[in-house]
Design a protein around this nucleic acid. Sequence first.
DNA 1: TTCTGAGGTAGACGTTTGTCTACCCCAATT
DNA 2: AATTGGGGTAGACAAACGTCTACCTCAGAA
Lengths: 235, 235
Amino acid sequence: MSLSKSVLAQGKRLLMEAALKLNASTRSLNALSLRELAREAGLNPNTFYRHFKDFDELGLAIIEEMTQQIRSPLRELRRKAAESVVPADSPVVTWQENPRLNLARAMQVNRETVKLFFDYVAENPNAFILGIRELHGASPILRRALRQVMDDFSQDMADDVRELKLMPELTQDSLYDIAETITREMFQLSMEYIEQPERREQICIKAEKMITSLTMGSAVLHGHGAILMGALQTE
Amino acid sequence: MSLSKSVLAQGKRLLMEAALKLNASTRSLNALSLRELAREAGLNPNTFYRHFKDFDELGLAIIEEMTQQIRSPLRELRRKAAESVVPADSPVVTWQENPRLNLARAMQVNRETVKLFFDYVAENPNAFILGIRELHGASPILRRALRQVMDDFSQDMADDVRELKLMPELTQDSLYDIAETITREMFQLSMEYIEQPERREQICIKAEKMITSLTMGSAVLHGHGAILMGALQTE
DNA sequence: TTCTGAGGTAGACGTTTGTCTACCCCAATT
DNA sequence: AATTGGGGTAGACAAACGTCTACCTCAGAA
C-alpha cells in the first residue's frame, strides 16, 4: 500500500500515495483533477508542478517504484521454492532420468509462486489496481510503460524456468510465449483476487491449474509428451 | 465501428458513437465531460439527459448493443468451422475411435474462430477498446456488466465445445475454466491486435498456440493424455 | 556569512464544467 | 382540431478547474 520511504521529497511521496488511493477508490488516473489530488494529499495544488510535469510523469514514477519493489522478490521466491524440493547442492537429475521428481518440483514452485504473488497483491492492492487500470487506460505512455514491465516479468520467469530446469527443454521463443501468457493472466486474475476476497482460495487454485495446463500442453506440443505421461501414470 | 441503425433516437445513437470515438482516442469514459461528448456529437449538452441518467447508463447501453452484435455470430462460426471438417450428417466418430480426425477438427475450429474473432476486432476496434478499458475501469457498474459479458462468452464457448465434441470429455467445471481463461486472453490480446497492426499475423498464431496448449494440457491432466499422444505420434 | 535553489504556499485569472429552468418543434393520440 | 409528450435547444448560474506570478522558508554550498 505505502510507497517506499526512500529519499523522495515528502510532497512527492504524498502525491503519489494520494494518486494510488484515489485511483483505486474513485477515478482512473487521467480522470483525476490536479486540485482533487492535492486536496487528498493535503497540499497546495501548485506543489504538483514542483515534482511532475503532468499526470503521465506521476504515473511513471509510481510504476517504477512498484516494479523495483516486486521484481526481485519474485525471482528469489522461485529459487527458494525450487530448493525446498531439491536442495541446490544435490546432484542434477534430468527430466529424462526422473520425470516424476522434476514434475513434483515444478508443481511445487508453481504453487508457491502463485501463492506469494497473490499475497503481494493482497498487500498492495492499490498498486495493482493502478497497474491493471492503466495497462488498458487512455494514456499511451503509461500503457507502453506497463507493457514493458510485464515483458520484463515474463523474461524473468522464462529465465528462471530455464535456469531451474522447471520444464523439459523448449525453444526460447515458446518458453517466452508461455511466460507472457502466464504473466498476463496473473495480472488479470489479481484484479479478481482483490475484488472478491471470498473467492481467493478458488482463484489461487484456478491460477495453478491454468499454469499447469498451459505448460503441460506446450510440453506435449513440443514432443515431450512421453516424459510427462511417464511422470503422471506412476502416480 | 458504427452502432446498429436500430430504432434508437438519432441523438442517442450520436451520443453513443461519440462516446466510443472519444473513449478510443483520448480519454476513458469516466473522464469524459458531458459537454465534450455533446460537442463531439454535435448536440446540445442537455440532450444527454434526455437519454441517460449518467455515464454508467451510457456505457451499459453501448455494451448491450455490442454484445448482441457479436455473440451469436461467434457461435455460428464455431459450427461452420466444425462442419467444414466433418459435415454434420456424417456419422459421429468418437475421440477414442479416431483421435487424429477429432484433433484435426478441433484445431481447425480453433484456427478459424480465432481468425474470425480478430477480424471482428479489427472491424470494431472502438467497441473493444471501450470494453477492455472499462472492464478494469473506475466504474463498478461497468466492470460488473463486462464481466458478465465475458462469462456469457465463456459459457457459450464451453457449450459449443461440448456439443461439437471438440475435446475429449472433461468435467463441466474444468471445461468452463478453460473457456474462461481463453476468453480473458482473447480480449486481452485483442488490444494488442488493435494497437500493433504489423504484428497481427503473429498475434493470431500466438493465440492459436495458447489455446492449443491450454486445452491439450488440460486433457492430459484429466487422463486423456494417451488419446492425445495417439493423435500426435501418427503425424 | 551570504546566497541559492528546491520545496511549498497564496491569490488571482479566465475557462470549462454540471445542471437548472424555460422554451421550441412536431408526430402521434384523442 | 386540440393536446400531449418525446426529443432537442438556449441561456444562465455557481462551482471547480488548470495555470500563472509572486512570495515564503530553510538547508546546504560558496
